[in-house]
């Protein structure tokens, strides 16, 4: 009986490996879309408690290219869990206008580095063709650093999205035995960081393209 069980254990991984690799490494480029970051009004308060605006500042985060890496582990034929790490370099821009004393409008900006590490799950569809759709969601830690490193703050990042994976090569042994290209679109939510502090959250689109190797 012990011998039989041992044999089954040996056979099952071999069978699964033939269908789809368990471990995937993904490296690629990512583009974080621009997003509004709200409006700040520098305000006094009048005797009746109403605001008196000194000037208005509209904030946005510019679109930003970056890099992304991902390690995922297939836990069933259709479901995988993974860890994604990303870096991008957006600018935080503020358009200041409407000064009560007539100061010239100005766009003030600050460059920053944005890092995120997210843990997520992914659902794969249609495992039998070269084109494999997938959808997933993830959430994790956000870190933003001002250009001059004077300020750094953490927050939360999360995304939901989906895409297509195109299998270039499959079914061979070793890391280069399974190669795919992956394209993905996401809706990303960020809270905190240096641009928002505790003041709220923002959504932005994100697209990513990557090379996948697996075994």
């Amino acid at each position: 009986m012990r011998t039989l069980c041992f044999a089954v254990v040996l056979i099952l991984p071999a069978s699964a490996f033939a269908q789809s690799p368990r471990l995937e490494l993904t490296v690629g480029a990512v583009v974080d879309g621009a997003s509004s970051a709200g409006v700040t009004r520098a305000e006094l308060v009048d005797p009746a408690g109403n605001p008196f605006t000194l000037f208005e500042a509209k904030h946005r985060t510019t679109w930003a290219p970056g890099l992304e890496g991902r390690v995922s582990w297939r836990v069933t034929e259709r479901w995988a869990v993974g860890v994604t790490g990303s870096w991008s370099r957006p600018d935080f821009e503020t358009r200041i206008s409407g000064d009560v004393e007539g100061a010239d409008p100005v766009t003030a900006a600050l460059g920053m580095d944005r890092f995120a590490v997210e843990l997520g799950v992914e659902r794969r569809f249609g495992t039998s063709t070269k084109w494999q759709p997938f959808a997933g969601l993830a959430a994790g830690w956000l870190r933003e650093l001002a250009d001059d490193r004077a300020l750094a703050d953490s927050g939360v990042a999360a995304h939901v999205g989906g895409g297509l994976k195109y299998r270039v090569r499959e079914g061979r042994p070793g890391w280069l035995g399974h190669i795919a290209l992956r394209a993905e679109a996401r809706l990303t939510l960020r809270c905190g960081g240096i641009t928002l502090g505790d003041a709220g959250h923002r959504w932005s689109p994100t697209v990513a393209a990557a090379l996948v190797i697996a075994r």
């Binding site: 004393e101 007539g102 100061a103 100005v106 003030a108 600050l110 250009d147 004077a150 300020l151």
Partner: peptide
């Protein structure tokens, strides 16, 4: 004349 600085300024924690 009144004027805005042309960059945002990061104020760090403890510095």
């Amino acid at each position: 004349a009144p004027m805005f600085h042309d960059r945002l300024v990061a104020v760090p924690r403890g510095g």
